[in-house]
Amino acid sequence: MAKRIEVKDLDIYYDKFLAVQGVSMTIQPRSITALIGPSGCGKSTFLRTLNRMHELVPNARVDGKIFMDDEDLYGPGVDPVSVRREIGMVFQRPNPFPTMSIYENVAAGLRLNSTRIKKADLDELVERSLRSANLWEEVKDRLNRPGSGLSGGQQQRLCIARAIAVQPGVLLMDEPCSALDPISTQAIEDLMLELKSDYTIVIVTHNMQQAARVSDVTGFFNLRGVGQPGELVEIDETTKIFSTPSNKATEDYISGRFG
């Protein structure tokens, strides 16, 4: 089920403003790819083009191609709704639906896609998703309580459960730990490592230790200059990026943060 993503010569625009230029990369299935770089370099923007959330901004558009396995995500006749169904997303701040219970939050995506799902099947799927998100033991006694009653870290794991409940091929994570404390962060990172056996995971992070800890491949985004578009400077195996990057800018960024 984990899918491969291939990006070819992607330019991302807000109206006439070119935000990110010329990104090409291959994201391998069953791996974690981390995207790092300074603020405003377009890594979150890039992430949002992968499931076509980018185009929700009026006049936002892209040039270039993104393939998931062999399907062109921006091909003619492709429904963005189906793309988002296939590529799940976890956001910077945990965002469970406040009016729904924990159970309903996990079931939300499933209910969209198959209306006639049986209660017993739904129960099973919800349980399985919550178990996969390492949340089942903590919430199994209060599935009907509101999701907003959980702690921040639990809420974020609930959002992950919600995203994986519909069995996406790819999971995008936009700084999923930036609003969490270290212990919750640890739990999410452990979860990512478990999930990577089933999913393709792409994570945007500001925390370089995190990228070093969890990812197999790291891509470094940078701004060419003030007012210039962002670009993918280099992408390589994480160990290589953090030990012997081939690009000077990558080295500066990494050593600057560590130094």
């Binding site: 429904d79 169904r85 896609n113």
Partner: peptide, 27 residues
């Protein structure tokens, strides 16, 4: 979305629900 999977046979928890293609009919 026209579902081409095995909705009628109950869910098979080990294969993805969504063998549905990304493209389908559009007006």
């Amino acid at each position: 979305m026209p579902t081409t999977t095995s909705r009628d046979q109950g869910p098979d928890l080990h294969t993805p629900l969504n063998a549905a293609p990304l493209t389908h009919g559009q007006l």
